[in-house]
Design a protein around this nucleic acid. Structure first.
Lengths: 113, 113
DNA sequence: ATTTATATATAAGATAATTATGTATTATTG
DNA sequence: CAATAATACATAATTATCTTATATATAAAT
C-alpha cells in the first residue's frame, strides 16, 4: 500500500470518476471497486470514505437514494449535473498535476551542479 | 494553480528529488526552481516549505549549512545518505501511485452499467 | 457457533497544507 | 531619495483530510 499521504486530495476525484462511469454506487461497493482496480494497493477506510461521501452530498455534487436489503440499508450515490462537471474537471486537474510532477521528478542534474 | 490538496504528501518528494539532482539548495531557491519547472503552476508557500525542510532535517534526511550573505543568512540543505535513499524511494512510490490512479481514472463504463 | 463479509456511521487524533504575521536586508524603480 | 519589490528566513492559527478506533447490525460461510 502507498503512503497514505499520497491519497490526500485524490479521494474525491476517485469517487467522482467512479460514479461518472457507473451511474450509481454505494459506499461499500466503491471500496471494493477501488481495491480491485488498484490490485489491493489502495484500500479505502470507512473513516475516510463516508465523511467524503457526506461532504460531496453537502456540496451538491451527489444525491442519495436509500434501498432496503431485507433488514439492512444500502445508500446509493449518484452524480448531480454539478457533480458530473466537477468529476471531469477534477480528473483533468489531477492529470495536469501529474504531468507537472513528472517534469519535476524527471529533472537531471544541471551541467554546472 | 492546482487545487492545493493535490500537493499534500508530494512536497517532501519534490524537495528530496531537487536536492538529489542539485547537490545543495536553500529554501528560497527551491521555491523558485519549483515555480520555474512547473511554469508557475506550483507555488510553494513559506508556511509549507520551511516546516517541511525542518522536518526533513529532524528525520535525518537532510543536513544544513548556514552561509552569510553580507548581513543576511542563507541556509543550504543537502541530502544525507538516508535522504538519498528516501528520495529514490519516494519518487518511485509517487510514480507507482500515479500509475494506479491512471487505471482508476481511465476506466470506461462497464457494459452492464 | 464462530468468524468473515456486508453495510453504514462517528469520534479522537495525526499530518500537512493555507493564510497570516513577523523580521530583516538588498535591489529596483519612479 | 523614497517607495516598492525581491530576497531570505521563521512561526502561529486555522483548515482540510486522512488514520485509527469505536459503534451498530445483518447475512453468509466455515
Amino acid at each position: 500500500m502507498y503512503s497514505s499521504e499520497l491519497l490526500k486530495g485524490s479521494l474525491q476525484t476517485i469517487i467522482l470518476k467512479l460514479l461518472s462511469e457507473n451511474g450509481r454506487m454505494y459506499g461499500y461497493e466503491i471500496t471494493g471497486r477501488v481495491k480491485a482496480l488498484s490490485e489491493g494497493e489502495i484500500l479505502l477506510t470507512e473513516g475516510a470514505l463516508y465523511p467524503t461521501l457526506h461532504k460531496l452530498e453537502a456540496d451538491g455534487l451527489v444525491v442519495t437514494e436509500t434501498v432496503s436489503l431485507g433488514k439492512r440499508i444500502r445508500k446509493y450515490y449518484s452524480l448531480t449535473p454539478a457533480g458530473t462537471a466537477t468529476a471531469t474537471a477534477r480528473v483533468q486537474e489531477f492529470l495536469e498535476f501529474v504531468q507537472t510532477m513528472r517534469i519535476i521528478l524527471a529533472t537531471k542534474p544541471s551541467p554546472d551542479a
